[in-house]
Computed example of a mutant assay.
Amino acid sequence: MTISKFIIKRRTTNDSWDVRSLVLPPKWTTDTTYEAGELSFELLMIDNTFIPQMGDAVYFGWNGNNVFMGYIFSAEYSKDNKTISCVAYDKLRYLKNQDSIVWPVSTLSQRFERVTKAAGITHKVVNNSTYKLKTEVADQKTYFEMLQTGIENVLSATGTRYYIRDNYGTVELLKAQQTQTDLILGDASLLTDFNYTQSIDQSANTVKVIREDKHSKKRKVVTYDEKTKKKKTKTETTSWTTTTVKHADSADHIKQWGRLQIVEKADNDMNDAQMLTKAKQLLREKNKISQTLKVTAIGLLGIRAGTSFYFRSQELKTFGFGQKLVFPTKVTHTFDPNDWTMDIEVLI
Score class of each variant (00 low, 15 high):
residue 38 E to Y: 00
residue 114 R to N: 08
residue 91 K to F: 11
residue 74 S to M: 00
residue 34 Y to I: 01
residue 99 D to W: 09
residue 77 Y to H: 13
residue 22 L to P: 00
residue 48 N to L: 08
residue 64 G to W: 09
residue 109 S to K: 02
residue 56 D to V: 05
residue 50 F to R: 02
residue 50 F to H: 04
residue 106 S to L: 09
residue 88 A to R: 07
residue 98 Q to C: 07
residue 50 F to T: 04
residue 110 Q to H: 07
residue 51 I to T: 12
residue 105 V to H: 14
residue 55 G to W: 05
residue 20 R to D: 03
residue 72 I to Y: 04
residue 52 P to D: 02
residue 35 E to A: 15
residue 97 N to V: 06
residue 18 D to H: 01
residue 29 T to Y: 00
residue 56 D to E: 07
residue 62 W to Q: 03
residue 19 V to Q: 14
residue 58 V to I: 11
residue 71 Y to M: 10
residue 68 F to P: 02
residue 117 K to N: 13
residue 105 V to F: 13
residue 42 E to R: 09
residue 55 G to C: 04
residue 38 E to K: 15
residue 113 E to V: 11
residue 90 D to V: 01
residue 47 D to K: 11
residue 105 V to W: 10
residue 27 K to W: 00
residue 117 K to M: 09
residue 65 N to S: 15
residue 61 G to H: 05
residue 32 T to Q: 04
residue 22 L to K: 00
residue 67 V to E: 11
residue 96 K to D: 14
residue 107 T to Q: 07
residue 77 Y to V: 15
residue 45 M to C: 10
residue 82 K to L: 12
residue 92 L to G: 08
residue 102 V to D: 12
residue 22 L to V: 00
residue 90 D to L: 02
residue 90 D to F: 01
residue 21 S to E: 15
residue 77 Y to K: 13
residue 88 A to L: 08
residue 49 T to P: 00
residue 32 T to I: 11
residue 101 I to T: 02
residue 65 N to H: 15
residue 112 F to P: 02
residue 57 A to I: 08
residue 110 Q to N: 12
residue 45 M to I: 15
residue 94 Y to V: 07
residue 107 T to P: 06
residue 118 A to M: 11
residue 36 A to T: 07
residue 90 D to S: 03
residue 51 I to C: 03
residue 21 S to N: 13
residue 39 L to Q: 06
residue 31 D to A: 04
residue 69 M to W: 10
residue 80 D to P: 02
residue 103 W to Q: 14
residue 85 S to K: 13
residue 62 W to E: 06
residue 52 P to H: 04
residue 36 A to Y: 04
residue 61 G to R: 03
residue 17 W to Y: 15
residue 64 G to F: 08
residue 100 S to N: 08
residue 60 F to S: 03
residue 26 P to F: 02
residue 42 E to S: 14
residue 33 T to V: 11
residue 49 T to V: 13
residue 95 L to N: 04
residue 76 E to S: 13
residue 46 I to K: 10
residue 81 N to K: 15
residue 107 T to E: 08
residue 79 K to H: 08
residue 112 F to Y: 03
residue 65 N to P: 00
residue 88 A to W: 05
residue 112 F to M: 08
residue 98 Q to K: 15
residue 110 Q to C: 01
residue 69 M to Q: 14
residue 45 M to T: 12
residue 26 P to W: 01
residue 62 W to F: 12
residue 44 L to Q: 10
residue 18 D to C: 01
residue 28 W to V: 13
residue 105 V to I: 11
residue 75 A to Q: 13
residue 64 G to H: 08
residue 35 E to R: 15
residue 30 T to N: 03
residue 109 S to H: 01
residue 69 M to N: 11
residue 111 R to D: 10
residue 105 V to Y: 13
residue 27 K to L: 05
residue 70 G to A: 05
residue 74 S to V: 02
residue 50 F to C: 01
residue 73 F to K: 07
residue 65 N to D: 14
residue 25 P to H: 05
residue 69 M to A: 13
residue 49 T to R: 14
residue 39 L to T: 06
residue 37 G to N: 06
residue 96 K to F: 09
residue 36 A to G: 08
residue 97 N to E: 14
